[in-house]
Design a protein around this nucleic acid. Structure first.
Lengths: 257, 257
DNA sequence: CTATAATCAACCGACGGTCGGTCTATAGAA
DNA sequence: TTCTATAGACCGACCGTCGGTTGATTATAG
């Protein structure tokens, strides 16, 4: 076969992108290395030139997603005008959005970048992020625990210090009342896991009526989680707002199947 | 080979037990079906007579462990003398103990029931529970996310309603101040996930000094988690006691490697 | 400055070994 | 006999290896 040489970085990135799409569509276990190299238009040898194993590929993907995640919340961290509470609220909002966007499918958009050659085109981070939204929401399917938990672990480990800094700011400002920002950060992120479970449940909804109910339930739950965070941080009830009303429903409506 | 026929229930149980030991020692992925049937002294055919797939085996194991888990906390649920707070405290203590016991290895005990024939002897639940303590603590190794999360999911789904009932009692008694017991139960159990992560970290400790520090850190964290639960439930600080002082250290000391 | 050799990363794809799962046959219970 | 439990040879998918190739880059000679 014709030999195509590319910048190593780009190749690696393409492989990751193909893997990401396939993993999100079919799940990690149901995707073979051959699937990935076929989609990327690369040989076995090339693949194993870049990644030690299929596992390593997953790990690298998790890391990349985690990095992209922090990039997306970077602005709320850097804005010096924000007090701790608003910073935390913005952070949580962005974080939740991040979570949900890796789930739903925007129907119809899929056609314009599927196919084996998509990887050949130059890749912007923005384009890859589109890939997220297009994915089949497999992260929420039960068969994909591995995929989800790997990504989640990576995201948590980069997000913990970030969140901890915000909390530390709050403690310094005297608005948050707790010790050990890092531990509290971990707890809040683990609570995010509870949210994930709830989102997964909501995603199971089939009929319109079920979806409506699920969306309501989810928003209620988010309010409750918000209240829990209020209490953990020693804030007035209602300080943390996890649920912008209607957002949940909007996201769910955009989802296919 | 000689054909040995047993009560289906017992066979199934033996297969589960062998699988449990192997999974805990080597992890799910690193255990082959052949390993399991060899240890159990059974043919491939027999195995696939009882379980549709390797996956199904894992699922069944997770279910059994979850069932055994509720059995072990059943008494604190049924004791009518307990008020909600003491019940919750006992529940959390037992639950935490459950978590930790599936991790450490009691050195030296291992010899007396290892080997391929152990499965042939009659099995009491008590003996199987010993198996827990004997396991290599692989549940805390990073390569065993699958194993851990499957078990955890099963345990959570049976524990949620149980915990919810306790919380509901507390709300009725007017000592807990929050709504939706089920959602709160889920949150508390997810917090348990944070504990797990911390335990996993503590388990990494190698030298005696490191272990000591890790034990201290872990107890601090448990106190913090306790405080968080206090706040979520609207209790006086110190009502929930997750860390019996010294217990953490004792458990860690009992662990090999 | 050009030509050529040497080097090395990037890439190819056939092949091997492992392992989950299937299938046919049969022993024993009812 | 019939049905369930058991045996174990066999199949095929799939991860990873390995020996080899290509082409860009750099060193060296002319």
């Amino acid at each position: 076969m014709a030999r195509i040489v590319k910048h190593p970085e780009q190749r690696k990135s393409e492989l990751l992108t193909c893997a990401q799409e396939l993993f999100f569509e079919r799940g990690y276990e149901n995707t073979t290395v051959n699937d990935v190299i076929e989609k990327a238009g690369v040989s076995k040898g090339a693949f194993y030139h870049y990644f030690e194993s299929k596992e390593a590929l997953l790990e690298a993907l998790a890391e990349r997603l985690a990095r992209e995640g922090v990039e997306r919340v970077a602005d709320v961290l850097e804005d010096p005008a924000l007090d701790a509470l608003s910073r935390l609220n913005s952070f949580l909002a962005k974080f939740r959005r991040l979570r949900m966007e890796s789930a739903p499918v925007m129907p119809g958009i899929r056609a314009d970048l599927s196919g084996g050659t998509s990887a050949a085109s130059p890749e912007s981070a923005a384009k890859r992020r589109r890939g997220h939204r297009i994915a089949f929401g497999a992260v929420f399917q039960p068969e994909n625990i591995v995929l989800y938990h790997r990504i989640n672990a990576a995201v948590m480990s980069v997000m913990t210090p970030v969140l901890a800094r915000i909390i530390a700011q709050g403690v310094e400002e005297g608005v948050f009342h707790n010790m050990d920002p890092v531990a509290v950060a971990e707890m809040l992120l683990h609570l995010g896991g509870a949210t994930h479970a709830a989102v997964a449940r909501a995603m199971q909804a089939q009929t319109e009526i079920e979806k409506d109910e699920a969306a309501d339930a989810l928003e209620n739950l988010l309010r409750l989680h918000g209240a829990a965070i209020d209490r953990i941080l020693g804030l007035r009830e209602g300080s943390i707002r996890l649920a912008e009303p209607g957002y949940t429903r909007a996201v769910m409506a955009a989802r296919t199947s």
